[in-house]
Design a protein around this nucleic acid. Structure first.
Length: 112
DNA sequence: CGTCTGACTAGTA
DNA sequence: TTACTAGCCAGAC
């Protein structure tokens, strides 16, 4: 029985909260998990991710829109396109698919 | 304990 | 656009 760290669990929760058809950066996920400035921890948490089909890990991208997933960027791109997100040259347009600060309240609740 | 390596980011040049 | 920097920090060795 592998225990999942509380920080990782909060990160997974934040990832689960990304709406379909939208993406969020590692740093945003970390901030939503109460871990501001710890984007790398989001990366590590996802790299040790449990097999959870309800965890939309593919919606997490770099702050500049590039896909950072080391294993299977193809799979990530495929999943993103499957929900209507345009992926070109391994990157998505954050201005079109990223979370807008003013929309955060509607979607996530209060903003940090 | 030190060093290195990342699914990172923002700043500077 | 790329290149480099400082900050970040949990594992692996």
């Amino acid at each position: 029985m592998t225990r999942i760290k509380p920080e990782y669990r909060r990160i997974y929760d934040a990832v689960r909260a990304i709406p379909r058809g939208r993406v969020a950066s590692y740093g945003e996920i970390a901030a939503r998990a109460g871990l501001p400035g710890r984007a790398r921890l989001t990366g590590r948490a996802l790299s040790e991710m449990p097999d959870d089909p309800h965890l939309p890990w593919h919606r997490v991208v770099r702050a500049d829109g590039r896909l950072a997933c080391m294993r299977g960027q193809r799979e990530q791109a495929r999943r993103l396109r499957a929900e209507g997100i345009d992926v070109r040259d391994g990157r998505v347009r954050m201005d079109a698919h990223g979370l807008h600060h003013d929309l955060d309240r509607e979607i996530w609740g209060s903003v940090p």
